[in-house]
Design a binder for these strands. Sequence first.
DNA 1: TAACAGTCAATACC
DNA 2: GGTATTGACTGTTA
Length: 621
Amino acid sequence: MMMMKMKMKMFASRDIRDLHHLEEEVQRLQEVQERSANQIALLQEVQERSANQIALLQEVQERSANHIALLQQQLANKTQDIERLQAELQSQQDYEEIKTELRTRAPTHTDDDVLPAPSDSADHDPVIQSELKVHHFCGKEEPASDIPVENMRSSSSSSSSSVVFIKEECEDEEEEEEELDTSSVARRVRETLQKHRVGQRVFAHCVLGLSQGTVSDILARPKPWRSLTRRGREPFLRMKSFLADEDSVQTLTVVQQRLRGIVPWARSPQMSSDQLIRNILDQNRSELMDVDSRSQRGSEDVIRNILHQAKHEMHVTSEAPEEVHYGTLSPSVQSPADFVQSIIRKVKCEMDEDTHPSASPAPLSIITHSFPTDAQPRTQVCVGSCEDEILESLDLDTVSITQRVKEALVVNNIGQRVFGEEVLGLTQSSVSELLSRPKPWTKLSLKGKENFIRMHRWLRDPHSVQRLTDTDQRARLKRDSQRLSDGFCLSDGSGAFEATKRPRVVLSAHEKDSLRATYQREPYPSQHTIERLAAQLALQTSTVSNWFYNYRSRIRRDGLTEPVQTRTVRSPASSSSVSSGLLSIKQEACDPEMEEDTHQHTRVSVAVQSVTKAEDLNELV
DNA sequence: TAACAGTCAATACC
DNA sequence: GGTATTGACTGTTA
């Protein structure tokens, strides 16, 4: 019995152990099952993600295909355009021959012949008559000549576009300048322009050789004669000559009408460059067709003037990235044929894929970009006509880019100046602004976006830092050797850089307070307010309006907060970090009011001697 | 055509 | 000597 009991106990305990085992097995199995379930879920998730990625890739692929199709279409269009332009060019080739023939047939004249005697037909043609008078504005008559239009320009003047109308310099008048009532001159000009419905732009281009914006400002806020520099007085002298010539307005009206049909500012926004070129060529052709019924000389001048203006405008508009200075005309553009060819070259260039790498910084329109953001697919394209479209689709993180650039510059000991000049084609101050206060991508204009694309490209280039370091070292060496060879004997007063730099107005804290207080009440002050404020603070009205432009602009830039206004006025002597031996500093009062308050209104007029300018230039080389 | 964006040059600041 | 600020300017845009 006992044995039986013991056996049963043994069995029971074995069963219990088995049960434990079984329980453990079950638990293990449950754990395994759980893990498997997790893994399955994970796999499903991965599968889902993969599916998404595949879908994304398919979408990208689709978009790329569309883009390629679009580019191919554009390429086809461009090719067609080129063919058409080439055909037109072919049809225009006789233009040069006609011109040559015109020259041969035109009566020869000496330098004493102010203008060739117009033919009978021209005598009775008011248009030609008025256009023949365009050379008389300064009381000096310009010798009619056969020189190419481009050569009619002054080689040094920045106001080059006024050649159609006036002789560049009026030296004789400037020798004995009488004091002009600039307000009256400006007012009379405004009245005249309004009366004859001549736009400021035409007036600005033809008479003053300035941009419309500048002329608008000059006319709205003429500075007093005494506070104008020699350069600043020039437009007023020109305006005076303009007002003095009875035929000038008529001439301007005629030219305005003639230009209206072909120049870019009058074209519709939809009009393409090609259409514009065609218009110019058509205009040119119709003028040539008319040649027999007009004075040979006069017609040629008309055609030449119109072409010159149109070419100038085209150049300024289409070649802007490289030719930023107003009123410059590429010397390579010598004839309508050359002009059209240059456009063809430009179009071809747009279609090239990175085959013509240019010196840094390259104009954006002829470089090949790789435009990835970190989260976006790469699209390697040639920017050109599709540039806007591509830029639209981009979304670069400007803050991150500037941050990385700043770090790279600091780590590699590269200065903002070198970086700006070599990579962006900007000055140190512009780089500083860009890096310290990058605008959001969406707030940037196309031009503004260019800088960030260049920075982005620079960051991606593995050799960029080394190249810049080398450049920096070379520049330093060059500067040092230049200094050694030049010594410090450049301030002999005979240098070519004797031209004085423009004086800089430094607003006092009190002036800024007043301006800011006015801004709070009236962010867009009326002309009356500007004048009152200017008088109150003894400032130029242009200084006041510039301050408001800048303040508004910088408020926009810095968000809703007020722009940084940390600088306070200090005495010029103590603030100048340059040796007083190099600078001639004088304080000047703008007007009698100013003299009463000179402790607050210090104007520093800095006449920089040649040594400073020479050094600056050497540094830039 | 006024207002704007982008930029420069002078100069203040570190 | 490098960087930041700011008044002024040019060409563009609404």
